[in-house]
Write a protein that binds this DNA or RNA. Structure first.
Lengths: 126, 126
DNA sequence: GGCCATACTTACACGTTTGTTCGTACCATA
DNA sequence: TATGGTACGAACAAACGTGTAAGTATGGCC
């Protein structure tokens, strides 16, 4: 997005990362809000203002940025209605829907091992 | 790790994020190198110098930071041998091993939809 | 005493992500 | 002319992730 020295180690490593299917996915769905936005859109079509209400803790700017990123990555579809007070609706693409089983597994792992890791930390105090 | 204003929106939102199993996992395995380090350790025990050779594109500092983070998250086990030239070995914990089926699914999704999204982008040029 | 190798550690700087604030465009209504 | 609601956009700043360069500690070897 922004201008950057393509020759920097940072950029070179970024390309390395993008070659890996795994890190590629993490880059797409990573970040602070993307997964939560995708969750909110599961099975629903929501307006920008709906999302704004749902995620009252994030600013309009962040919401816009995340929606744009998800759109350009083909994970959500954006539909603009040329009405007087503008209306824009967002919905998941089939691609995004296919992510759910994986995300459910990830979530399950997180739930299980969050507790497990907490226990390990406590028992290692001795 | 660093000092930070706990009252900032940034921090408040961080806590919000940590409550979600999904974003929790992404935080644990996200970042530029963690998944690749975990991959390298799959089924093996490696020394610091081995990892350094494997990831010649990343600096010692980053390697150390990532290993420390993975260790404190209970994903890898660190064993120090009190020998003359220091020897430190890293291996996956059972918790991390259980991540593999999920990561394989993620990777498969990434592989499939990377191509799909590329096609969509091309066809939407008209 | 000085050098070697391993495995770090520290100080500093670059680049990105996230957050704050203010402004834009639309058109109906008052 | 001013106000209202929706969906943004731009300029700026704080915080974090990542990278660079140099230094530390150990103890055997010369």
């Amino acid at each position: 997005m922004a201008t950057r020295k393509d020759s920097s180690t940072y950029s070179r490593n970024e390309k390395w990362i993008a070659d890996c299917d795994l890190t590629y996915v993490i880059a797409k769905i990573g970040g602070r809000w993307k997964l939560q936005i995708l969750s909110a859109l599961e099975g629903k079509t929501l307006r920008f203002s709906d999302l704004k209400k749902t995620f009252s803790m994030m600013t309009e700017r962040m919401l816009t940025l995340q929606l744009r990123a998800l759109e350009s990555d083909g994970l959500i579809k954006r539909t603009v209605y040329a009405e007087v007070p503008a209306r824009v609706e967002y919905e998941l693409t089939p691609v995004a829907v296919e992510l759910w089983p994986v995300l459910d597994m990830l979530s399950a792992w997180g739930s299980k091992h969050r507790q497990l890791i907490a226990d390990t930390t406590i028992s290692s105090h001795g």
